[in-house]
């Protein structure tokens, strides 16, 4: 029986490591909110194109599609950054 426990112990770390892998937080609704805050902080001088992208991102985040919403918001921020 001892070898069965040894085998279990051998496999145990890999199984637990799978569950213990760190999680990426940049696809969460909270991160949506953070990006919206960053965009708002840019002020009114941003272009309408950036604004439209940010609006699309906001809607997607509200619909629960955080990753798509975050992608749009990032493109809006990138566009605004380029305009500066």
């Amino acid at each position: 029986m001892a070898w069965v426990f040894a085998l279990l112990l051998l496999f145990a770390p890999s199984v637990s490591a799978e569950h213990a892998a760190p999680r990426l937080m940049s696809d969460s609704p909270e991160y949506c909110a953070e990006l919206l805050g960053r965009f708002a902080a840019l002020g009114p001088q941003v272009s309408s194109q950036s604004r439209a992208l940010a609006e699309e991102g906001r809607k997607l985040c509200l619909e629960g599609q955080s990753r798509s919403g975050i992608a749009k918001l990032r493109r809006a921020l990138k566009e605004a950054q380029r305009e500066e």
Binding site: L24, S26, D27, E34, L35, R38, R67, I70, A71, R74, R75, L77, K78, Q81
Partner: peptide, 14 residues
């Protein structure tokens, strides 16, 4: 870090 993540369109950065 915040600025870099905000414009990471490919979503590859950690």
């Amino acid at each position: 870090i915040g600025e870099r993540l905000a414009v990471d369109i490919d979503d590859h950065a950690i």
